[in-house]
């Protein structure tokens, strides 16, 4: 017996609605649990004072600083490298075996579990290059880890810029670089920014690769060669070693809130950029 198309349509609509609701629901439940368990322990004191007694008491200031330093430095390193690679792949080379190899490499890098990046960073940066557990080793490892995301999203964004805009730029006697700099990159900026934000999220939430390379010192990282701890690592250690579930949840809540505010900020910037262009 054939089911009436109209009934199928209603069924599909309901099930798609449920699926969307389910996705948002999971997010809501996670945030709610963290909020309920973490919010009683959060106050200004918790944010601006340093951890004491392994994090059982005191605040999480040094881990906030560690997180910010790690993420900012990695993004500053990875963005020019990644966008540069994307420009090279899309604008400066023709499709060839060479570009296919690079693309294959990028895709493979994107699929590698982060613990392997950690292991590599530990063997190469920490041991071989004698950096020790340090902010520098963490930054370099994180940079390698987030590069593929930035390259792929930038490449897609650059490819989406209409060819006609490049042609008209050439016809106005611009060179290739002037065209890339003044037409292609500004038009691709929202897409590139999306990739950068995804990478920020990944770097903020990373634990395994960072424990291996940046270590987990609770002291304030004051130089590139100091070890340090990020909020995600702090949360992991507090919970894993049963040091203080209260402070673990409080840290998690601050982590979630900062990721949320970064996303809102990025969304805002993106809308500003897009409205300028259309």
């Amino acid at each position: 017996m054939r089911i009436k198309p109209r009934i199928v349509d209603v069924f599909v609509r309901i099930s798609l609605n449920l699926q969307a609701f389910f996705t948002v629901g999971i997010l809501a439940v996670i945030v709610a649990i963290i909020f309920i368990k973490g919010s009683p322990y959060i106050n200004l004191e918790f944010i601006i004072s340093s951890p004491q007694d392994m994090g059982r008491h005191g605040g999480i200031f040094s881990t906030i600083v560690g997180t910010i330093l790690l993420v900012l430095l990695s993004i500053f390193l990875a963005t020019p490298l990644g966008v540069g690679t994307a420009i090279f792949l899309t604008e400066y080379t023709k499709e060839s075996v060479f570009t296919k190899v690079i693309r294959f490499g990028v895709e493979s890098l994107a699929g590698i579990p982060s613990i392997l990046f950690g292991l590599f960073g530990f063997i190469f940066f920490v041991t071989k290059l004698k950096m020790g557990w340090s902010l520098l080793a963490g930054v370099l490892t994180t940079t390698i880890m987030i590069l593929p995301t930035i390259i792929r999203t930038s490449e897609e964004a650059i490819k989406a810029v209409p060819r006609s805009l490049r042609i008209v730029s050439y016809s106005l006697s611009a060179t290739k670089w002037e065209t890339v700099k003044k037409v292609v990159l500004p038009s691709a900026a929202p897409g590139i920014l999306t990739g950068v934000m995804l990478s920020v999220g990944r770097a903020v939430g990373e634990t395994a690769a960072i424990i291996f390379t940046m270590g987990s010192s609770l002291r304030m990282p004051l130089s590139l060669m100091d070890s340090g701890r990020t909020m995600a690592v702090h949360f992991y250690i507090l919970a894993r070693e049963g040091i203080s579930m209260e402070n673990a949840y409080a840290t998690a809540l601050i982590l979630v809130l900062s990721i949320l505010s970064i996303n809102i900020l990025a969304y805002y910037i993106m809308n500003r950029v897009i409205s300028k262009f259309s």
Binding site: S164, L165, V168, S171, L172, S173, T175, V183, S187
Partner: peptide, 21 residues
């Protein structure tokens, strides 16, 4: 080629302003 394209301007089939102001 830069001089050439400065001397010879071109208008295309479809209006193609840049997505700027």
């Amino acid at each position: 080629i830069i001089e050439l394209r400065k001397k010879i301007g071109m208008v295309f089939q479809r209006p193609n302003p840049f997505p700027f102001s």
